[in-house]
């Protein structure tokens, strides 16, 4: 069986239209090739045809919840791109250490690994007590995982390697407790965090932040939607606030790019200057 044959791009359009109509979730600004791969994945997991997929989306809200969970990519790691966290530690946090309050927005936080990486970094620089970290995602089920902060032990090897490569001299094991085949993030890293639903496509500004980190989310959006979201981040940053994008994401729009200064070109860290 050829998996790519399960659904055509035209049928992908139909599914996007259906989801918008029935549930109000707008995926029209998502890159189609990625969305098709996600839908194929769902069809294989659920063993359904396009016809069955459509009727289940319409008739079964429980099915739709699972659909929503799988339609977005939730692959993440702690300290993913160690060079980014090194740059954050060396170039951004010293600057913020003069601030009385540090509010961080991790947009598209998925299961929370990146937000807890930020929390660890802030704690190590003695900034955690005056920080507050918001993690948002479109997907309520990943937010539940993020809130619990319980992860597969098997993933900690890669996470630890990343953490060490980010220039830390401690051990990641200081920040979690292992039980059998899972680890639980220390509650001290959870106290100043809030995970909640936010849809970058439709929702607006909800606070003012010193750091916004949104990494490997924009790649799933069309150029138009990327622009909308980047403007939302601009509006949500305090003057001289920092914007962190994924290693393959950048400020394409020149008008917007002029309002930022490049802090780290390789790790894509920007500062709002205007």
């Amino acid at each position: 069986m050829l998996t790519a044959k399960l659904i055509s791009l035209e049928q992908v359009e139909e599914i996007i239209g259906l989801v918008a109509k029935v549930y109000g979730f707008d995926f029209s600004g998502y890159s189609r090739a990625s969305i098709k791969r996600r839908i194929v994945r769902i069809m294989l997991m659920k063993q359904v045809t396009v016809f069955e997929l459509k009727s289940q989306i319409i008739n079964d809200s429980g099915f739709f919840e699972e659909f929503l969970q799988e339609i977005t990519v939730n692959v993440t790691e702690m300290f993913r791109d160690p060079g980014f966290f090194k740059a954050l530690r060396e170039k951004v946090l010293p600057y913020l250490s003069t601030y009385p309050r540090i509010k961080v927005w991790n947009a598209g936080c998925s299961t929370g690994e990146e937000l807890y990486s930020f929390a660890i970094l802030l704690a190590e620089e003695n900034l955690y007590d005056r920080s507050f970290l918001y993690g948002t995602d479109i997907n309520p089920l990943v937010l539940e995982t993020a809130k619990r902060g319980i992860y597969d032990l098997k993933k900690m090897k890669q996470n630890s390697e990343n953490y060490i490569a980010s220039g830390s001299i401690r051990s990641l094991a200081n920040y979690y407790v292992a039980h059998y085949d899972a680890v639980s993030i220390n509650s001290s890293l959870k106290k100043n965090t809030l995970f909640s639903m936010h849809n970058l496509v439709t929702d607006g500004v909800f606070n003012e932040f010193q750091i916004i980190s949104c990494r490997n989310v924009l790649i799933y959006f069309t150029v138009e939607l990327q622009e909308r979201v980047l403007n939302l981040f601009y509006e949500s940053l305090c003057p001289l606030g920092f914007l962190c994008l994924g290693s393959k994401e950048f400020l394409r729009n020149e008008e917007l790019a002029r309002k930022f200064r490049v802090i780290d070109k390789i790790e894509n860290i920007y500062q709002k200057i205007e």
Binding site: S31, R32, S34, R38, V73, V75, I219, Y220, K248
Partner: peptide, 21 residues
């Protein structure tokens, strides 16, 4: 294709990157 990303082709002949499984 960059390391660690899937390279996808979009309608209209543009490229996109994807960090899925």
């Amino acid at each position: 294709a960059p390391p660690d990303y899937h390279l996808l082709v979009e309608e209209g002949g543009s490229l996109s990157l994807d960090y899925s499984e």
